[in-house]
């Protein structure tokens, strides 16, 4: 059924991405691809993978933006991972003519049933975030599953039951949890760091949150102590050998 769940899901599983920490290494995208190409939405087809125009299905894309403060001219580089936000009012779900695109009523995860998808692509038109990528080879739409086949997998050790992008992030920039529970770690993190939604004006009510950059240290008024640097000038002859002391005396003269 492509109508959204009548009652809001009791759990809203989602991701919190810390833009202050992300270094743009693409490890989350690669591990996502590796897990999911044999997971729920498998395969994540690649076409012409080693050719001139490679093209493939990925659930996670890492952009890099430059943000310039027009007043000061100072700019910062921000790495920006982009994936499905598992929206509360997911337009990709309501536009689907077949019911293949759906939002789970128990945990809010948005999924596609590959057996009933007709590949009309309308869901990808309706999504403001580019979360859906069409698989030309399979003729169906593919998207992030929040690793639904990993997070509930009891054959995995408990600490591994998080999405692949979260378990692989080397900097700990990605967090997973229940954003409907105000006491959850992710909700507290969002509250502390003033996590934000992407494009709230689109009215999709995304579940995922992004954490802003922390304020940068600013020494334009010169009040901050400068970091200690190594002193490369060695002007003492103490402890030097006979030859070195002779050269030192010769050069100092």
């Amino acid at each position: 059924m492509t109508s959204l769940p009548a009652a809001p899901p009791s759990k809203k599983l989602g991701l919190v991405v810390d833009l202050d920490i992300c270094v743009g290494c693409h490890a989350c995208a690669v591990n996502c691809k590796e897990w999911n190409t044999s997971g729920h939405m498998a395969p994540l087809t690649d076409l012409d993978a080693y050719g001139a125009d490679p093209n493939g299905v990925w659930f996670n894309r890492i952009h890099t933006f430059e943000v310039t403060d027009e007043a000061t001219g100072a700019s910062q580089t921000v790495h920006f991972p982009r994936s499905c936000l598992h929206c509360d009012d997911a337009p990709c779900v309501t536009v689907c003519p077949t019911g293949a695109s759906y939002k789970r009523s128990d945990d809010g995860i948005v999924l596609v049933n590959a057996d009933t998808c007709i590949g009309c692509k309308l869901c990808s038109w309706a999504c403001p975030y580019g979360a859906r990528e069409y698989d030309e080879h399979e003729g169906v739409m593919k998207k992030c599953t929040l690793c639904v086949d990993k997070i509930y997998n009891e054959t995995l050790p408990e600490e591994s039951r998080v999405p692949a992008c979260v378990s692989t992030c080397p900097t700990g920039a990605r967090h997973f949890g229940d954003l409907a529970d105000p006491e959850s770690d992710v909700s507290k993190l969002v509250a502390t760091r003033q996590g934000f939604e992407l494009m709230p004006e689109q009215g999709t009510k995304p579940v995922n949150r992004y954490l802003p950059l922390r304020p940068r240290q600013d020494d334009r008024d010169g009040t901050m102590s400068t970091p200690r640097t190594l002193d490369h000038v060695d002007d003492s002859a103490d402890g030097a050998g006979l030859l070195a002391r002779w050269v030192d005396r010769l050069l100092s003269a």
């Binding site: 490679p54 990925w58 933006f65």
Partner: peptide, 24 residues
Amino acid sequence: TATGLGQMGTVRLLESPHSSDNYL
């Protein structure tokens, strides 16, 4: 608004996530 970074200043794409065009 797409990146949520608008309050910090002007947002400009510095690097695309991929070297060739994807489906989007």
